[in-house]
Amino acid sequence: MRELYHRLYRKLAVLALLLALGQPLLAQEAAKRITLMQYVMQERPVLAELVTKAGLTPVLSGDAPYTILAPPEAELAKLKDLPPVRIRAVLLGHILEGVFQEKDFKDGATLETLAHTSITVCRKKDYTLIDGLRISGDKAQAKNGVVHSLSGKLNL
């Protein structure tokens, strides 16, 4: 009887381990089914408010691929009182056309934002800088792009 309990316990332990290992994969797959706008609405409320005020909801809800270089929420909160046209310009300066994983940012590259401004990439051994701002390890994958967290707001 004791041996039966040990075998059952081992099987349950293996099953629990497999389920635990599968959770990150399930979360990643679920994330790939939501749009950038849905992600922003769920995880970045200040950014969502600004995107809506700037009229950029259709851009982040569509099928076209984009990369958002998202400043911290505290930095974005400082923009709330600006006119929608100015908010739109700032936000477009933080969005790239296409999907860029951090490894895709090449040292010395100059990239054009949707605001038609240029940003410069600087690769270090363990991290990436965009116009001097560090990309943090936080990133979110969506079905129409990716969101990278920045250490601050780009100067546009």
Score class of each variant (00 low, 15 high):
Phe100Thr: 01
Leu60Thr: 09
Tyr5Ala: 12
Gln23Asn: 13
Met1Val: 04
Pro65Trp: 13
Leu114His: 06
Ala74Leu: 10
Pro84Gly: 01
Thr120Gly: 06
Ile130Glu: 01
Gly152Phe: 04
Leu4Trp: 04
Ala89Met: 06
Tyr127Phe: 08
Leu17Arg: 15
Glu102Ala: 13
Ala30Trp: 13
Leu79Gln: 04
Lys103Pro: 11
Pro24Cys: 09
Gly62Thr: 10
Pro84Ile: 01
Val99Ser: 01
Leu111Arg: 04
Ile87Glu: 08
Glu112His: 13
Asp126Leu: 12
His148Leu: 04
Leu69Ala: 03
Thr52Asp: 09
Pro24Asn: 12
Leu50Val: 00
Tyr66Thr: 13
Lys32Ser: 15
Lys11Tyr: 15
Leu156Arg: 13
Leu19Cys: 14
Leu15Met: 07
Met37Gly: 02
Leu12Cys: 08
Val147Leu: 05
Lys53Asn: 12
Gly108Cys: 07
Ala48Tyr: 08
Ile34Tyr: 14
Ser151Gly: 14
Gly22Trp: 08
Leu17Glu: 15
Leu15Arg: 11
Glu102Met: 11
Thr35Cys: 08
Lys139Asp: 06
Ala30Cys: 10
Pro58Met: 00
Ala31Leu: 02
Lys32Arg: 15
Val59Arg: 07
Ala70Trp: 06
Gly108Leu: 06
Gly62Gln: 12
Lys124Glu: 14
Arg123Lys: 10
Lys11Pro: 15
Pro45Thr: 10
Leu76Ala: 03
Leu76Arg: 02
Ala13Glu: 15
Asp131Leu: 08
Thr117Glu: 11
Ile68Asp: 01
Leu76Val: 03
Lys125Met: 07
Gln101Asp: 01
Ala140Val: 02
Ala48Thr: 08
Leu4Asp: 05
Leu19Asn: 13
Ala48Gly: 10
Leu133Ser: 05
Gly137Tyr: 11
Leu4Val: 10
Thr57His: 08
Gly22Glu: 07
Pro45Ser: 06
Tyr66Cys: 11
Gln38Trp: 00
